[in-house]
Design a protein around this nucleic acid. Structure first.
Length: 495
DNA sequence: TCTGGGGTCCTGCACCTT
DNA sequence: TCTGAAGGTGCAGGACCC
């Protein structure tokens, strides 16, 4: 147990929404909701102004729109958030070599490893200086929690929100935690919370009083034992700077349930290809292929197959996923499909298993054994065509329905201009950056029925910009990269 | 009311080997 | 040769997190 607050937890406030407000002066002080805008989208982040209407993360977007009909609804711009995240992580790296990012907007820092003096005043000073620097560099606010362990530092930053700093003095953990809900502890979600409530435990004090044996009996060995320790304020998990990914997966929820088995099969192939692209980009290969199917009634099942060795071969993963699909009943409709690879290894060279599989495919093709699949090459080309058709189909559907948004963030993302795409096929995503030959930089406020509305303003604009409407195929309008956010002048940027 | 996407970890069961 | 225990591995599902 540490005797000084040596762990810092940083949590950026309403990160995606705050980044959008910083980038778009007209949205500052207004309710902003970022998330999937399709019929089955959910809220990723709501600004504090939107939270006042009851909107929160993971809420279905349709419900959010009912609660806050006048909020700005935007699709996420991950490239912008990643850029800001890198700036913030760099600032954290100046505090200590031991930084553990949890997501784009959250991280633990081991201050002791960074040489911060082991006393309360020094930790508080480091935390306050960090918050100022983040505001100076990004224009955004972050909340800081300081404590002797990861669990308590995280609880502290939660209490500090928004835009604050809370320090938990080591030694006071147990009395601080005692009256809190069991849900404050990491690993206690809705299901475990309910389970404990039925057993008469609602506060952390109840857990500590119940004893380890009782918690193990209720929740199992691993979960029960670790929860008992946490309930007594004990958490000696170290800050871990580097973590290797253990799986790579992609999944898509469809606007409308799929019933056509042929379409389901082609979607699985497309997902397998996307999954391998990600796998290869990470320089990894994997041994177990996992197919995920969520049916019309939201029931979810997974099927997996372990290969003889790891692979990063598109054909091998595609065929394994297709085999797994054969064993799944999809009558009634499919809401979501996913393909993943686990059992990751670090090699990228051609493996013998993939070569053997390729030989088998070529032999089968030469023998004409599988009509329609053709050779390896033509099989791949066919799959690529199917992807192209899928995207084009999505565009037509969006146009016909007057929908103002993409079917899903994953599909057609990045469309909207540039890259030699025909202008007639463009899609304009609410919130995304554009540039007009005459009016300059702006962002898409909405689109539909052949028109796109753009607000022309930049992160540094002193006042909300003007709004203009164009035809969706206006040749003078093109998609643009996000502009860098502007820090708050006058803040301390010294190191 | 109607539930995304990308992950991690744990549990229980079946099967195989020693 | 049969039997049972123990451990490893594969598979499926559930819970949780951001």
């Amino acid at each position: 147990m540490r005797t000084a607050p040596t762990i810092l937890h940083l949590d950026m406030d309403a990160f995606f929404a705050a980044a959008e407000q910083a980038a778009k002066p007209s949205l500052r002080g207004k309710p902003v909701v970022v998330g999937g805008l399709g019929p089955r989208g959910v809220v990723a982040t709501a600004s504090y102004e939107a939270r006042r209407f009851g909107v929160h993360s993971a809420m279905p977007m349709a419900q959010a729109r009912r609660l806050a009909p006048n909020a700005a609804y935007l699709v996420p711009r991950f490239s912008l958030y990643r850029t800001v995240s890198e700036q913030v992580m760099e600032l954290l790296g100046q505090l200590s070599p031991l930084v553990e990012p949890l997501s784009m907007d959250e991280a633990f820092v081991d201050l002791e490893a960074g040489g911060t003096a082991a006393d309360t005043a020094s930790a508080r000073e480091v935390g306050e200086r960090l918050r100022k620097r983040i505001r100076a560099v990004t224009g955004l606010s972050g909340s800081v929690g300081l404590a002797g362990s990861k669990m308590l530092a995280k609880i502290a930053s939660e209490q500090a929100k928004p835009d604050g700093l809370v320090l938990i003095t080591p030694g006071t953990e147990r009395e601080l935690l005692a009256p809190m809900s069991v849900r404050i502890l990491p690993g206690v979600g809705p299901a475990t919370g309910d389970h404990l409530r039925r057993a008469g435990m609602t506060t952390v004090a109840d857990l500590a009083a119940a004893g380890e044996d009782e918690l193990v009996r209720l929740l199992g060995r691993s979960h029960g034992a670790s929860l008992y320790r946490m309930a007594r304020g004990i958490d000696d998990r170290p800050v871990v700077a580097e973590r290797d990914a253990k799986s790579v997966s992609v999944e898509d929820t469809f606007d409308v349930d799929l019933h056509d088995r042929v379409r389901v099969r082609s979607e699985v192939e497309r997902l397998a290809e996307r999954c391998v692209e990600r796998l290869r980009a990470a320089g990894r290969s994997g041994r177990t292929v996992v197919l995920k199917v969520r049916r019309f009634d939201f029931s979810t099942l997974t099927r997996s197959e372990t290969l003889r060795g790891p692979t990063d071969d598109t054909g091998v993963v595609r065929e394994a996923a297709a085999r797994l699909l054969e064993g799944v009943d999809t009558t009634g409709g499919v809401r979501l499909l996913g393909v993943g690879v686990t059992g990751l290894a670090d090699f990228t060279q051609e493996d013998l298993f993939a070569q053997a599989a390729q030989v088998a495919r070529e032999e089968a093709a030469a023998a004409g054994a599988v009509p329609g699949t053709g050779s390896v090459d033509s099989g791949r080309a066919g799959a690529v065509d199917a992807v192209g058709e899928g995207v084009a189909g999505g565009i037509e559907e969006a146009g016909e329905s007057g929908a103002d948004e993409a079917a899903g963030a994953g599909r057609g993302a990045g469309a909207g201009g540039g890259g030699g795409e025909p202008v007639s096929a463009r899609r304009w995503h609410a919130g995304h950056d554009v540039r007009h030959a005459e009016y300059g930089a702006g962002w898409v406020q909405g689109s539909g029925v052949g028109r796109v509305t753009v607000r022309f303003e930049e992160p540094g604009s002193p006042a909300p910009g003007r709004v203009r409407t164009f035809r969706v195929d206006d040749p003078e309008l093109e998609a643009a990269e996000p502009l860098p956010l502007v820090g708050v002048p006058g803040e301390d940027v010294g190191v």
